[in-house]
Amino acid sequence: MTPIVLPVQPLTPSAFAPFGEVLALEGADSFPINGGRTQRFHALGRVRCLGRDANVVLSIFRGQPLVPPVLDLMERHPLGSQAFMPFSGSAYWVIVAPPGVFDPDAIQAFLARGDQGVNYFAGTWHAQLLPCDPDADFLVVDRDGAGQNCDIVRLKPPRTWC
């Protein structure tokens, strides 16, 4: 089955607003702390964690590029947000669709710079981690706890973006 080619747009806060938050220092509120030796870039995103017996967890994901770049599934986490912040400084792909009933015609592709993170809103459909470079490390903030928090859909036909 021939993949559908997704147009790719730059990751900007306004373009990504329906899906989550862009985590970046550019344009962020900041103020000095620790006697002026540290600049705090405050509240870049909000962690959402729904349900009882749930916690916010910090993890490191080490990702590999998808070769060839053909996406055949997407997932969502209905009980909490999920944030990705790259450590390596390399770019990565962000492929999303709005929360709710999955609409394959609403899939959008973004190219994130290595200094930008994303915080997917609870329920936002998204691709798995798609780094451009091998062994790319990401800080991941998400929910851990009771309840079914990962739904998967298969894409027919699959999608490609580059």
Rank of each mutant, 00 (worst) to 15 (best):
V94T: 07
P10M: 05
V70P: 07
D105W: 09
P158W: 05
H126L: 12
M74E: 15
L155P: 12
A136N: 05
D133F: 00
R113T: 09
I4A: 13
V56F: 00
W125F: 14
D72M: 15
G63S: 11
L50I: 02
L11C: 04
I95P: 03
F121C: 09
I60T: 13
Q128T: 06
P86M: 01
I4G: 11
P157M: 04
G45E: 01
L23D: 15
P68F: 03
W161V: 10
I60G: 05
V8F: 04
T12W: 04
G147M: 11
G36N: 09
I33T: 03
C49F: 05
F31C: 09
E75Y: 06
A15N: 03
Q148G: 11
H42W: 12
G63V: 07
G145V: 05
A146C: 05
V101Y: 01
A122S: 08
P69A: 15
G27Y: 01
D151F: 12
G51Q: 14
V101G: 00
H77N: 00
N55M: 13
V22R: 00
V22L: 02
D103W: 04
D137M: 08
P7F: 10
S59P: 03
D133E: 11
P78E: 13
F87H: 07
D53N: 08
P134H: 06
F16C: 06
T124D: 13
A106F: 14
L44M: 08
L25E: 06
D29S: 12
P68V: 00
P10H: 04
R37E: 13
L129Q: 01
V57G: 08
Q128M: 10
P69H: 15
V94N: 05
F41H: 12
G117V: 07
L130K: 08
G145A: 07
R46W: 02
L6W: 04
T124A: 15
P68E: 01
C150K: 00
F138E: 10
A24I: 00
D142I: 01
G51Y: 14
V47W: 06
P131A: 09
A28L: 10
F84E: 02
A24T: 01
L11R: 00
P32E: 06
A146N: 01
D137E: 14
I4R: 15
E75W: 11
F87P: 08
F87N: 06
A106T: 11
W161T: 14
Q148D: 12
E26W: 03
I4W: 13
G27C: 06
G100R: 11
M74V: 15
